[in-house]
Structure formats: structure tokens, C-alpha cells
């Protein structure tokens, strides 16, 4: 028995070794993909196929990126200040949407009374595009952080509610019955069965919400801002600096990817029990 176990463990670690090697190989492939695109871009500009005033080559973009770390030209902020300003707006809207949206969806999905009470209002508000709220929001709260965060909130709120609602509706009846025969009251079943079983869908919703928040950022920062990546892009456009615009886009893309990978880690931790058999 123990000898078998040792053998199994040896095999397992050998398997993990090969997996690691495979992963390294794929990582190399991904890097090569990005490099290819950059090379093509550089070549297209250098060969004069595209005007470098309209599309600066990657080398120039990289140079601008480096400069922007210290320089406040042309938008009046360093890159760091812009990133922090944008993160503040996007994340505050995003987190408030999770804190309100997820419990709301869960309650609606579990208790029919909550569903019947809230659902009509929600269904009426849901189809209104978040951008359409901008004029009202400006009238209500001006153009500060709160106003911008509220716009982000509207885009992130809807997927949080819908996914939590659907997720908890899909709770397996057998697991509810198991708890009921053990004599568990409804709120305990909600807590012990409903919430954990809805988590995969909730996380899918949060992922959509994160994507929405980050991509609505530029729109939100069109509401008169004095800092932020969207603001930086706007200024880059007015002063005809496509390199600044592209730096803004690249940074938005990169931070989006980082946020998404942080979310993946959280998801992996909370859903560590989820194994495909």
C-alpha cells in the first residue's frame, strides 16, 4: 500500500514536471505572437506604407511611454497619476456594483417576494444604456469622482445582478432537499447551499462587470476630467499626438489584462473545489 503510494507520488511529480515544460513552451509561443505583431507594425511604418504621423511605430510608442513616466506633457499629469485616477474611478464603481448587485441578484433568485418586488424596476432600468445616464448624473453630482464612478456602476451592476440571479436559480434541488431533510431552515440553506452553488455564475458575472467597467472608463472620463487614462487619450487627440493616444490604449489594455488575471486568481481560490471529472 505505502509502496504503491510512493510510486504514485513519484509518477505525479514526474507528470507535473512535464506539465511545467509544456507550459514554458506555450509561454514562448505567446511571446512570439506578440513579437510578430510588433515587428509587422514596425515594418509597415518603416517601409513607408503608413504615414508615421498617423501611426507612430512601436519604438516611438515605447519612447513616449518611458517619457510619460516622468513627463507631464501634454495633459498635465504623469502616467502614474493618470493610472491611479482611472483605477479609482473604475474600481470604486466596480466594487459598489458587486456589493449591491450580487446580494440583490441572490435575494431575488432565492425569495419570490424579493423577485416580484424588485424585478419590474430592474427590468425597466436594465435596457437603458449606461451612457444615457451621463446628462442626469452630471446634473445630480457634477463631474467629480462620484459622477464618473456612478456611470461605471451602471455598466457593472447589471451583469452582477443577472448572473447572481441565474446562478442561484440553478441550485440543485437535490442539495436543497438534503438540507431540508436534515431540518435546515430556509435562510441556512440559502447560506450553505444557494450561495456556494451560485459562485461559478457569480464570478462569470463579475468578470463581465470588470470588463464593462474598464471599457466604459474612457466614456466616463469624457465627462470633464483633469486626470485619467481616458482624459490623456482625449488630450492626445486634441493636440494631434497619436503616440499619446496609443500609449493610453496600450496601458488600458495592459491594466485590463492584469485586473483580469487577479480576478482569475480569486476565482481559482474560491472555486478550488470545482473539478471536472
Amino acid at each position: 500500500m505505502t509502496a504503491d503510494k510512493q510510486k504514485l507520488e513519484a509518477k505525479w511529480s514526474a507528470y507535473k514536471e512535464t506539465q511545467k515544460r509544456e507550459n514554458r513552451k506555450y509561454l514562448l509561443l505567446s511571446a512570439a505572437g506578440i513579437l510578430t505583431v510588433l515587428t509587422l507594425w514596425q515594418a509597415v511604418v518603416m517601409m513607408g506604407l503608413v504615414d508615421s504621423k498617423l501611426l507612430p511605430p512601436p519604438t516611438v510608442v515605447l519612447q513616449t511611454l518611458m517619457d510619460k513616466i516622468y513627463s507631464t506633457v501634454p495633459d498635465g499629469n504623469t502616467l502614474g497619476t493618470n493610472i491611479i485616477a482611472s483605477l479609482k474611478v473604475a474600481l470604486s464603481g466596480f466594487f459598489v456594483a458587486i456589493i449591491i448587485g450580487v446580494p440583490l441578484g441572490l435575494l431575488m433568485g432565492w425569495w419570490t417576494y424579493a423577485d416580484r418586488f424588485i424585478r419590474p424596476i430592474f427590468e425597466l432600468v436594465r435596457p437603458v444604456p449606461p451612457i444615457a445616464w451621463i446628462p442626469l448624473v452630471v446634473v445630480w453630482m457634477g463631474v467629480g469622482l462620484k459622477a464618473k464612478a456612478l456611470i461605471i456602476f451602471f455598466t457593472a451592476f447589471v451583469p452582477c445582478v443577472i448572473n447572481s440571479y441565474t446562478g442561484i436559480k440553478l441550485t440543485s434541488q437535490v442539495l436543497i432537499d438534503v438540507s431540508r431533510t436534515f431540518g435546515a431552515p430556509n435562510w441556512l440553506i440559502f447560506w450553505k447551499i444557494g450561495i456556494p452553488s451560485s459562485l461559478p455564475m457569480v464570478f462569470a458575472g463579475i468578470r463581465v462587470a470588470l470588463g464593462n467597467s474598464w471599457s466604459t472608463l474612457v466614456a466616463a472620463e469624457m465627462l470633464a476630467a483633469s486626470a485619467g487614462l481616458g482624459y490623456m487619450i482625449q488630450i492626445g487627440r486634441t493636440v494631434a499626438r497619436p503616440d499619446i493616444v496609443i500609449v493610453g490604449m496600450v496601458v488600458i489594455g495592459a491594466i485590463g489584462a492584469i485586473l483580469s488575471s487577479i480576478l482569475s486568481r480569486c476565482e481559482k481560490y474560491f472555486l478550488r473545489w470545482k473539478v471536472n471529472r
Binding site: S172, V174, D177, V178, R180, T181, G183, L199
Partner: peptide, 19 residues
């Protein structure tokens, strides 16, 4: 079920996957 101690083994697998 609140008063009595009843256990049920269902036809379908019913272990809680997150525990």
C-alpha cells in the same frame, strides 16, 4: 425533519461539491 433526525440518501449524487 426539524424535530426528528431523518437522513436521506438520494438517487442522484448529492455530496456538496464545495465541501
Amino acid at each position: 425533519p426539524r424535530k426528528h433526525n431523518i437522513s436521506f440518501v438520494f438517487q442522484e449524487p448529492s455530496a456538496l461539491p464545495w465541501q
